[in-house]
Simulated scan of single mutants.
Amino acid sequence: MKSKMKGATIAGAIGATLLVAVAVAQTPAITFRNTITGEVLNFDDALPEGRDTPGVKKFLQTGVNPYNEDKSCLKLGEQIFLSACSGCHGHLAEGKIGPGLNDSYWTYPQNETDEGLFSTIYGGAQASMGPQFVNLSLDDMLKVMAWVRHLFKEEPEKAKWLTDEQRKAFKSYSGHEEFPDDPPGQCKGQAAAK
């Protein structure tokens, strides 16, 4: 009996240690704050799926969206944007009820950074822009952000979220485009699952 209890205690301790290790690994290195109130965002409220993808893990550590200009993520981002965001922001993010998102003017200047745009999407903003953590997974938010960034219609020098390499290759959005069904990249294989 003692041996079984000792084994259960050790197994419990190992399990608790693993849970703490997972929680620490998913703790953001950056403090994300609500766009309006400045309060620290609580990611415990996020939808359970799409929380621990490699893209989300990298983003939470760096504040840079790894899906920007990744063609395998753009098609998915477009689909999510059209169903979740275009009603207020327009089909090409030109603005409607909500502000335009495809130029260099930002209602909230922090949205020039991926960290700021993510915080606005996750925690909401003023008027009708409620928090989207109840509707979109963290991974879906990154895909939507990549699509919004892709729709940018001004000079790449004004796209502060692009890396130098991305800026050199960037072409301002000029209209509808076709993406292959499953191009290589970080989101490969996810198109069929959606």
Results as ranks from 00 to 15, higher is better:
Cys73Asp: 03
Ser86Cys: 06
Pro54Asp: 12
Lys2Ile: 10
Asn111Thr: 15
Lys153Pro: 01
Ala46Cys: 02
His91Ser: 00
His89Cys: 06
Thr31Cys: 01
Leu82Asn: 09
Asn65Glu: 11
Thr113Glu: 08
Asn65Ser: 10
Ala125Arg: 15
Val22Trp: 05
Thr27Gln: 13
Asp140Arg: 00
Glu155Pro: 00
Val148His: 05
Pro131Thr: 13
Cys187Tyr: 11
Leu136Met: 10
Thr53Asp: 02
Gln132His: 11
Cys187Val: 15
Ser104Ala: 14
Pro48Asp: 03
Gly175Arg: 05
Phe170Glu: 12
Ser128Asn: 14
Gln132Met: 15
Thr113Gln: 10
Thr120Ile: 05
Thr53Cys: 02
Thr53Ile: 04
Ser3Asn: 10
Met1Cys: 04
Ile97Val: 13
Ser172Lys: 15
Lys57Cys: 00
Tyr122Phe: 15
Leu19Pro: 05
Glu69Arg: 08
Ser119Gly: 12
Ala93Val: 02
Gly15Thr: 06
Ser86Phe: 07
Asp44Cys: 00
Glu94Ile: 07
Trp147Cys: 00
Ile121Ala: 11
Lys158Trp: 11
Phe43Pro: 06
Tyr122Ile: 06
Gln186Ser: 14
Gly185Pro: 04
Gly175Asn: 04
Phe43Ala: 01
Ile80Met: 04
Asn111Cys: 15
Tyr122Gly: 04
Asp164Cys: 00
Gly98Lys: 02
Lys188Asn: 09
Phe179Ser: 11
Ser83Arg: 15
Ala125Glu: 12
Phe81Glu: 01
Gln166Lys: 04
Asp45Trp: 06
Glu178Leu: 12
His150Cys: 08
Val22Glu: 08
Arg167Trp: 10
Tyr108Met: 09
Ser119Thr: 12
Cys88Trp: 08
Ile97Thr: 12
Gly77Lys: 00
Leu117Trp: 10
Glu157Lys: 03
Thr17Ile: 11
Gln166Pro: 04
Pro180Trp: 08
Phe81Ile: 02
Trp106Tyr: 06
Leu60Gln: 02
Met5Lys: 11
Asp140Gln: 15
Met129Gln: 15
Lys194Gly: 07
Val56Gly: 01
Glu39Ile: 00
Ser128Asp: 13
Leu60Asn: 01
Gly12Asn: 06
Pro183Cys: 03
Pro66Cys: 01
Asp140Ala: 02
Ser83Cys: 03
Leu136Arg: 03
Ser104Asn: 11
